[in-house]
């Protein structure tokens, strides 16, 4: 009898193949654009476009995709529900509200400070959502995201009202629809913070799996339940705030990616989290490329592409994962 502790469902060639695919997509993202680069002999002008626009955009896509997918995964563990992500728990909406308030009351402050305030708001929103869930007795699987979407809707309409009254509708539109066309060198570097947050999430992967087993089992195994819960919410809130500040909201990503990976290889985060990160990056790169190519030379914002693709996938997952057999 083999101990076979890690009989991986994915064959051994999968990781190198995955890295190759990711690199190929990143290369494609560098190649596609309105400006025509002469790849045989890059001029100074070409280098400038590459380093100031194309490369930052590609890196921003990878960082956003990775961290949003991972934050969705963590949220699903914390709430113990498959159908949540920061966009269905009020987290993103609260971050957006925070940004709006900063634009209103402290427009002169640096982007980092604004992001921190947005993250604090996101944390507050998420905690409020958790409290709401505890107060609502009926916790059917589909009820949880519905409550979250309604809760987010309340925060969203407050934000909308304020933005409307104070002529900030344009800023609001920038934050709430993901778009990478404006990413330039000097305007995306904050996103590297999400790489660090994703690394922290990976280091704590076992703790998040345990918290997904529920309070009783987690506490029995000696987990500091509240501190891990808080750690998870802080990571999710920071990732949400950073992405809203830099690229805007990308819907469904945090919902779909963890579900697909879960169906394929289960929920042991130590093993599945790298795949969630990878698939998040791949999906965002593909959607962004589609958005750039579909009506070339114009662009469709990635939020829109993802919204179309994501809602279809979401309905599929909803049908597949709410079968009685699964509960």
């Amino acid at each position: 009898m083999s101990t076979a502790s890690q009989e991986s469902p994915a064959p051994r060639i999968a990781p190198p193949l995955a890295v190759l695919l990711l690199l190929a997509l990143m290369l494609a993202s560098l190649l596609v654009g309105v400006a025509d680069l002469s790849w045989a002999a890059l001029s100074d002008q070409d280098w400038l476009i590459l380093l100031v626009s194309r490369l930052p955009r590609t890196l921003a896509l990878v960082l956003c995709g990775t961290s949003l997918a991972v934050s969705g995964l963590i949220m699903q563990m914390l709430v113990r529900n498959r159908f949540v992500e920061p966009g269905t728990t009020g987290t993103l909406e609260a971050a957006t509200l925070g940004l709006l308030l900063m634009a209103l009351f402290a427009p002169g402050l640096g982007v980092f400070t604004k992001m921190l305030v947005a993250a604090l708001c996101a944390l507050g929103g998420s905690l409020l959502f958790m409290a709401l869930l505890r107060a609502i007795p009926l916790r059917s699987m589909v009820m949880v995201p519905l409550v979250g979407i309604m809760f987010g809707g309340v925060i969203g309409s407050m934000t909308l009202f304020i933005a409307y009254r104070f002529n900030l509708m344009q800023s609001l539109a920038n934050w709430s629809n993901g778009d990478f066309s404006a990413v330039l060198r000097g305007r995306y570097e904050l996103l590297w913070l999400t790489a660090a947050l994703t690394a922290i999430a990976y280091a704590a992967a076992n703790r998040f799996t345990l918290i997904g087993l529920g309070r009783n089992l987690a506490m029995n195994l000696g987990l500091g339940y509240r501190s891990v819960m808080l750690l998870g919410l802080v990571i999710v809130s920071l990732i949400s705030a950073v992405t809203v500040v830099t690229a805007g909201v990308i819907p469904f990503l945090g919902l779909i990616v963890p579900n697909v990976v879960s169906l394929m290889m289960g929920d042991n985060l130590r093993r599945s989290l790298p795949w969630v990160a990878w698939l998040g990056a791949v999906l965002v790169l593909v959607c962004d490329l589609l958005g750039r190519l579909l009506r070339y030379p114009y662009e469709i914002p990635i939020g829109t592409v993802m919204g179309v693709l994501g809602s279809a996938l979401f309905i599929y997952l909803l049908l597949k994962r709410t079968r009685p057999a699964y509960v």
Binding site: S5, N81, T209, G212, G214, N216, L217, G266, D267, V327
Partner: peptide, 12 residues
Amino acid sequence: DNPISLRLTVFE
């Protein structure tokens, strides 16, 4: 009751 909704293997 230990409602486990995670997809873990028995070994895990």
